[in-house]
Design a protein around this nucleic acid. Structure first.
Length: 366
DNA sequence: AATACGGGGAC
DNA sequence: GTCCCAGTATT
């Protein structure tokens, strides 16, 4: 009963067969010209892996180029200010990645002479922002030593190949996927293998419409055998997003500059510069009385929504003018001159509002 | 084990 | 509009 093999499982798929088919596919169809695939120094691989966390390739490319141009090596990054790092991160999201990158660069310089501890998975994962998968990716891609990756692409490929049920956010499901990832990871060509399995997930074993006809594992994939590719991996159980509202004060001084405050290091938009924010108009009034008495409020602009992964924020832009600039000048505040933008990190909606606030700028949406 | 953490692209 | 992505840190 040969059918038994295809319907009862892909137990015939040995790691050697998987690796061989995957690498053959990669040699023919894989992407090999992405910016971070040219010079695979640990530093360059590291920056790319961090940027690619929860962020798609197409979005990352320009950020990566700018970042590498400004910080060509770990020493340049370690010597920079956090503001400058976050400036180049503006719009990428998950800003803790940028702060951790900066922090890790300083650790690498101070403790490791600027070299990555690529011979120790433990030392790698001890660096801020580097977890098990990213450490594996850096080791495998930059050194060719054995390193195991389990990112979103690999999870999808393996979940389908073995019809692994359940949401990968569940520890039990994640453990099973790591077990499979370990099983299939070879001892040779680690750089190509890592790129290959991620590429397969990104370009062929896609979330929405996988191209099973061209897949080297079409005959052994359990999800495909069931005709249920779309069911794997299962998605996160969704809840209704909580809604919150905030007023952003666009306070302009007589020089036409706008007031920004730096947010605390942790939490939403940590370390980024933002307009003063208020839960309600009463809190806004109290702040005006204390910090900028005599400031004149103009009609509020139309509100707009900004969606986070865990809530929706309705933003009411409240423009205002103040006569003198002396009142609001504390640490962690600055007057932003749109004619000469500072190299600081800005939350995406703040950047939008700054653009819309430029003299003679079109303001269709506000 | 569950939750916090952004923004944009795909559909 | 909804979903979710080359995850990690914190609680």
């Amino acid at each position: 009963m040969p059918e038994l093999l295809t319907t009862s499982g892909n137990i015939a798929l040995t790691p050697a067969t998987f690796q061989h088919r995957l690498l053959e596919w990669y040699d023919r169809h894989g992407r090999k010209t992405l910016p971070w695939q040219q010079d695979k120094a640990p530093y360059r691989v590291w920056v790319s892996e961090i940027m690619l966390q929860q962020t798609q390739v197409a979005t990352v490319i320009d950020y990566y180029r700018r970042f590498m141009a400004r910080f060509p090596d770990v020493h340049a990054l370690a010597a920079a200010s956090q503001d400058e790092v976050l400036h180049l991160w503006t719009g990428l999201g998950y800003y803790a990645r940028g702060r951790n990158l900066h922090k890790a660069a300083q650790i690498l310089v101070e403790r490791y002479g600027g070299e990555f501890p690529v011979h120790s998975l433990e030392a790698m994962t001890a660096l801020p922002g580097i977890g098990r998968s990213t450490a594996g990716a850096i080791i495998a891609i930059s050194t060719g030593q054995r390193g195991v990756i389990l990112d979103g692409n690999v999870k999808r490929v393996l979940a389908r190949l073995h019809a692994v049920a359940g949401w990968p956010g569940k520890p039990a499901v994640e453990r099973e996927l790591w077990r499979l990832a370990e099983r299939y990871t070879p001892d040779e060509r680690l750089d190509d293998y890592s790129q290959a399995i991620m590429d397969l997930g990104a370009t062929l074993c896609k979330r929405g419409t996988p191209s099973c006809l061209f897949c080297p594992f079409e005959d052994v994939c359990l999800a495909h055998a069931q005709g249920e590719e779309r069911r794997f991996p299962e998605s996160k159980p969704r809840k209704v997003l909580p809604e919150r509202q905030t007023i952003m004060l666009l306070l302009r001084n007589e020089e036409g500059r706008l007031l920004l405050e730096q947010r605390p290091g942790a939490g939403i938009w940590g370390g980024l510069w933002c307009f003063p924010q208020f839960d309600d108009r009463e809190a806004l009034s109290r702040w005006i009385d204390a910090k900028a008495p005599g400031a004149i409020l103009e009609p509020a602009w139309n509100s707009f929504a900004h969606t986070f992964s865990h809530f929706r924020l309705h933003i009411v832009p409240q423009p205002a003018r103040c006569k003198r600039t002396g009142h609001v000048s504390e640490v962690d505040t600055l007057w932003y001159d749109s004619a000469r933008p500072a190299n600081i990190g800005l939350a995406a909606p703040v950047k939008q509002l700054l653009n819309a606030s430029r003299p003679f700028a079109a303001q269709p949406s506000f």
